[in-house]
């Protein structure tokens, strides 16, 4: 390493630009793209989603010809099968965006540069949300179209001009983006990588199982209904192909995709608001 023993300081830059939200957004985008973990996570999402789609398309078998909406449902299923996996990757990534800063001390640099703090958190949410949406959409569309020929060969030829299918694909990407932001908020609240990841994955994987188990044992309707409002259940509604499955049993809630989206936004809003209050108030 060379040592500069003379100590010239840089000339004062001509234009003295200041702190701006656009700048903070750029900064967070640089931060996200300059970590290997991000690149790996996004690559894994695309690979696994497309891989699973090929697996499902190749092994698909129908003894009798399906009705049109049945074919579309299968096609959407092929495209969105990977989301079950992607949501876990995205939850980890979302938590790490902030807990990685807490564990390394980077958060002190971040909050010194953006001392009002909430713009930094908001920028993180926007950047991870948008990036996840884009990667999620690419993975789902690739998973839907690349194996479509194989699927058609197995007796299910999808209608590529069906807006309901695209709504489901977009819903899947939106779900992943919202899970990333939810996980970022949880990570901000707990400020610890292991804790943040455990809490997010627990909410996605463990809580639904426990709730439905208890609901099944006690056959309580309200518990069954409650589990409809968990993020993962809301996501299922968002990225499933809307099929007419007959009348819903009395007293059981069935959400429309737009309702599911609103409830998911509510989850994210509450978690993000809590995170914002805490990051503003706590010592860094």
């Amino acid at each position: 390493m060379t040592t500069t023993t003379t100590a010239p300081t840089g000339p004062a830059t001509a234009e003295r630009s200041g702190l701006s939200f656009g700048g903070v957004l750029r900064s967070e985008a640089i931060k996200l793209t300059t970590l290997r973990s991000t690149v790996w996570c996004f690559a894994i999402i695309v690979l696994v989603t497309v891989g699973l789609a090929f697996l499902l398309a190749a092994t698909f078998f129908t003894p009798a010809p399906l009705p049109d909406d049945g074919v579309q449902a299968v096609w959407v299923q092929v495209g969105t099968l990977g989301i079950t996996f992607s949501q876990l990757v995205v939850a980890v990534l979302g938590a790490l965006v902030i807990t990685g800063e807490y564990s390394t001390g980077m958060i002190r640099s971040t909050l010194t540069a953006v001392p009002r703090r909430i713009p930094a958190l908001a920028a993180k949410a926007i950047v991870i949300g948008v990036a996840t949406f884009v990667v999620g959409l690419v993975s789902v569309l690739a998973a839907a179209f690349l194996p479509a020929g194989i699927l058609a060969g197995n007796g299910a030829e999808p209608d590529f001009a069906d807006p309901a299918a695209y709504a489901a694909f977009a819903g899947g990407a939106l779900y992943l983006a919202l899970i990333a932001v939810l996980s970022l908020s949880i990570g901000t609240i707990v400020r610890n990588s292991a804790g943040g990841i455990a809490a997010s994955l627990g909410l996605l994987l463990v809580v639904p199982g426990v709730l439905s188990l208890i609901a099944a044992i006690t056959s309580t309707e309200w518990l069954q209904n409650l589990s409809q409002f968990l993020p993962s259940a809301l996501g299922n509604v968002l990225y499933a192909y809307p099929q007419d499955t007959g009348p819903v049993p009395d007293g059981i809630v069935a959400l429309e995709p737009w309702q599911a989206a609103l409830w998911l936004f509510a989850w994210v809003a509450v978690a993000f608001a809590t995170a914002a209050v805490l990051i503003k108030r706590r010592d860094a």
């Binding site: 702190l19 700048g23 903070v24 967070e28 640089i30 931060k31 800063e101 001390g105 953006v114």
Partner: peptide, 18 residues
């Protein structure tokens, strides 16, 4: 106060961008 997974230059670029 630096993320250990980022290069020095990228760390400074991120701070400068704000």
């Amino acid at each position: 106060a630096v993320h250990t997974g980022r290069s020095a230059r990228n760390h400074l670029r991120a701070l400068a961008a704000t």
